[in-house]
Amino acid sequence: MAMLPRIPRLLQAVLTVAVIYGGFRLVFDAILGQPIPASLMTMYMFFIVAGVFMVFTFTEESAREMVVPIRALVEDPSRKPIRNLVFVLVPLAAGGLTYMKMLPSFEAPLELRSIHPAPPTTVELYGKRFDLLKLENPFRKLEKADPEKFRELVAEGGAVYIANCQYCHGDKLDGKGPYAAALNPVPLNFQDIGTIAQLQESYLFWRIATGGPGLPKEGAPWLSSMPVWQEFLEEDEIWKVILFLYDYTGHRPRSWGHE
């Protein structure tokens, strides 16, 4: 069996960092589909580089081995061409990075958003007061009691959805409607397990009926462009749309009974 040549320590260190970075990208971007935000990734990598540096330099031999190629690059006369190349490329790269960083862009400035705006306990809609803690979808019980009627209501909800909601939230309920690209924050993807599947139907009722302007103060800054649907839809229509949302995506609404 042929012996593989031993990889130099410096390269090992660089490779380790690269593999960890690649691993992050592979796992989070490609497999899980939830990329790590750049701001966090930068700090992750900073401390990973620090950790790798520590492992590779805590013994004297290993540290020396790490430095040898760098030192050779600077001092060894035979490396002159590479040296010149590196000495030109490094400042160029630094300059290029700075240029890219400073280049004005159309990206809106960052804003901190509160992820879970807490709902109020009661809300005034359609001239009535709704207690969000106890509020239930009046049609939900038909699911077992009268499945045929329930299917009918879901279909009606679907019609309401297509007439009103799909422009932004998409005909597949995946948040990719024709207008979605123009909106910030992006329309919610109902297929995602992290959205309606985590919420009670009363929460959806509140969010649909009051829209972006109805978001509580602690949710700010939150410039959601969701309309105030109570001005356009009937109370029953909202409840039917909610039925449709859960039915189409296959999620179940959260309820305290199951926990």
């Binding site: 966090l40 924050p185 992006v186």
Partner: peptide, 20 residues
Amino acid sequence: TLVLTNEELKALGGPYHKYL
């Protein structure tokens, strides 16, 4: 609470990271 650019917000489908 993550600091997200608008691109990342879109890629994540919301301000919430499922795994982190």
